[in-house]
Simulated assay, not measured.
Amino acid sequence: MSMIVTRLLSSVIILSLLLSLSGCVQPDSGPEPEEYIFNYTECNSTTYYIGERSVKTVHVVHNTSRLELVLEGAVLSSTPETGLSNLVVVKRTETDTPLKYNISSRVRHGRRYLVIEFPGSADFVAYTETLSGNELSRKTGDGLVRVYLPEGYATGSLLLGTPRPSPERVFEDSSGRMVIEWNGSNVSAFSVAYYKDSAPWILTSLFIILGVAGILILTYFKLKIGALQRKRDFVEKKGR
């Protein structure tokens, strides 16, 4: 009897190990694809929609069933296993019907890689990551790269933050959001520091206030020194 129990336990352990090595499969109940914007492109592309505290990433994939991501230190994991949340894989003709996918991660050369495997018929892979601070930095692959800043935010100030490297195109969409664009084939990585639209005006006003305050202080000390000089001259003349 004890031998049978031992064999059963061994089988369960082996099965668990096999499942853990193969990654995890998307459950039947998952996030709704409607929370993402699916804009199809004729070539591979990656679009980042930055929110207040998160970024929604949408990959357009062609002729592949595998997507490998590098999880940078800037990414704060919302789920310890993957660093991603609300992951969906869909076809462009059926964006309301998520496809099954398999996800696994590994560490290579000191970096953590996330591998997403999905049917070859998929057109979009989308997920959400949390952000800390007002800067987005990512490595790029081949294809178009677009970054949508939050509504009411901008970039380009040397004092407050700029996109690096210099983008190939900057424009506003129909809702007024600033969009930064690169050809991923020409750059290996990008970084965008962004700020509220009102920040440059506030900074300029602060500099003006500090400048006026500095002038007033200098004028005050100049008058004070002049008064002391006149007083000293008066005392010296009186002493004679």
Rank of each mutant, 00 (worst) to 15 (best):
F171W: 13
R230L: 11
R106Y: 10
Y49N: 04
F207D: 02
E42S: 14
E172C: 08
L203K: 04
L216C: 15
K139H: 12
K139D: 13
R7S: 10
P33D: 07
G133E: 11
I116S: 01
S175W: 12
I208A: 12
V212F: 05
R112Y: 05
E32Y: 13
S174R: 15
T82V: 03
E117L: 01
V58I: 12
P200I: 06
G239M: 14
A227K: 15
V5N: 05
G143Q: 00
V25N: 08
K139E: 14
S10D: 11
R111Y: 12
V12R: 09
G211C: 05
E172L: 14
R177D: 02
G226W: 07
G214C: 13
T64H: 08
K222F: 14
L15G: 08
S198N: 05
F171R: 09
S78C: 09
G141W: 01
L67Y: 10
I13D: 06
L84Q: 03
A199H: 01
Y148I: 06
L9K: 09
M1N: 13
T47V: 12
P27R: 05
Y195K: 00
Y194A: 02
A213M: 11
T82C: 02
S137T: 15
G120R: 07
N183F: 03
T155R: 04
L71R: 11
K139T: 14
N63V: 04
T162Q: 12
N134F: 05
A199M: 08
W201N: 14
N183K: 10
A154Y: 02
P163H: 01
F234S: 09
V107D: 06
F38R: 03
G120K: 03
A74H: 10
I116H: 03
E172M: 13
R146I: 01
V235I: 13
Y195D: 04
K100G: 06
S54I: 06
L15A: 15
L228W: 14
S2Q: 05
E135M: 14
Y48L: 08
T204Q: 12
A213V: 07
V5Y: 04
L228P: 01
A154F: 06
A227Y: 07
A193I: 07
D233Y: 08
K139R: 15
Y195L: 06
V125P: 00
T140D: 08
F38G: 05
E129V: 12
T128A: 08
Q26G: 10
M3H: 15
S65C: 07
I209G: 00
L8I: 13
N63T: 07
K231V: 00
Y101Q: 04
Y36I: 05
F118P: 01
K56H: 12
L18R: 05
G184T: 02
K222Q: 09
F171H: 15
V187F: 02
P33Y: 02
S104L: 09
A199R: 07
E181T: 09
N39I: 14
L136I: 03
R230F: 06
N102D: 08
F171P: 00
R164Q: 15
L228C: 11
R232E: 07
V75R: 04
E72K: 09
L206A: 15
K224L: 15
